[in-house]
Amino acid sequence: MKKNKISFESYFWAADRIECPFELVNAFYDYAHLDFYKHTLGEAIIYSHKRKIYMQDHPGQIFVFYTAMSSFLKACYCLKVKSKKWQVKESADCESILHLASLTKEEYNNPFIVFQKAFAENTPDEFEFFLCEIVHLSLSPSAEEFDFDMMTPYLYLIKMLDASQLMRERGLQRIRKTVQAELTTE
């Protein structure tokens, strides 16, 4: 049976077709810094409530931001599945609450938990709808009321950004199969 691959559609912003979620995360942060993504997402949410247009001088930049974030979300969904075979390398315990960013201690120790929680709470389509609506509303000159929860996807997106950056900094390693060794000794 052939596995269906998710297209990350990275060619819109990275000029390459990237098929590995780990490579996509690297390209995502090579394209722009974590602070840029957090700032742009926060500003888009703020402008979705205003009668002003976000990035009025360069509205095309918000479209590129949208395509990069959409690719990032697809990679995060794949990372949720990859958590069974991969783990983040150990690091020194965080000495300050600032090291945690938006993550709990448990999420800091195992960033894959963030992806599992996020996609247990919202489907990939719901995250995509959230991104689309935020971009649409931030580029609209009129303030509109919306009848969906914006905070939950926003908070999970921030957590996924922090978790993926942490994974990139600390590196990954395959989980060794110790289960087989334990079964042969019994």
Rank of each mutant, 00 (worst) to 15 (best):
S96A: 12
E106S: 14
Y108L: 01
E90H: 07
S71G: 15
A101Y: 04
S102E: 09
F112T: 02
Y66G: 10
N109Q: 14
E95V: 10
E95F: 06
L73M: 09
Y108K: 05
E107T: 03
Q61F: 08
S91L: 06
V81A: 13
P59H: 13
T67L: 08
C94I: 09
A92Q: 13
K85N: 14
T104Y: 11
Q61T: 05
S102Q: 04
L103C: 01
S83Q: 10
L98S: 13
H99S: 14
L79N: 06
T104F: 07
V64T: 10
F112H: 02
K105Q: 09
K80R: 15
S70L: 12
K84P: 01
E90Q: 12
I97A: 06
S102L: 05
V81D: 15
K105T: 06
C78D: 15
K105Y: 09
L73F: 00
K82C: 08
F112P: 00
E107V: 04
S71I: 02
I62Q: 08
F65P: 04
V88C: 13
Q87W: 06
Y108T: 04
V64M: 10
A75F: 02
L73E: 00
T67W: 04
M69H: 05
K84F: 07
Q61K: 09
K89Y: 01
G60E: 12
F63L: 14
A92I: 09
S102R: 08
F112G: 06
C94N: 13
S102A: 12
L79P: 03
S83K: 05
A68C: 04
S83G: 05
E107A: 03
G60I: 00
G60R: 01
S83V: 01
D93Q: 13
S83P: 02
Y66S: 10
S70H: 08
S83H: 06
L98T: 08
K80I: 02
A92H: 08
S91F: 02
N109Y: 07
T104I: 10
S102Y: 04
I97W: 01
Y108S: 04
Y66M: 12
Q61P: 00
Y66A: 09
K84V: 06
A92C: 09
K82E: 15
N109T: 08
H58W: 05
S91N: 10
G60W: 03
E95R: 12
Y66P: 07
K85C: 09
E106F: 03
K105I: 04
A101W: 02
N110T: 01
Y108C: 03
A68Y: 01
F72I: 06
P111R: 06
L98R: 09
N109I: 05
S71C: 05
F65D: 04
T67Q: 12
S96H: 11
E95C: 09
Y108D: 12
C78E: 15
C76D: 12
A68E: 04
E106Y: 06
K85P: 00
Y108H: 12
A92R: 13
T104L: 11
I62W: 03
C94K: 11
Y77Q: 14
A92L: 13
L73I: 02
N110A: 07
W86E: 14
Y66C: 07
K74Y: 03
K85G: 11
V81K: 14
S91I: 03
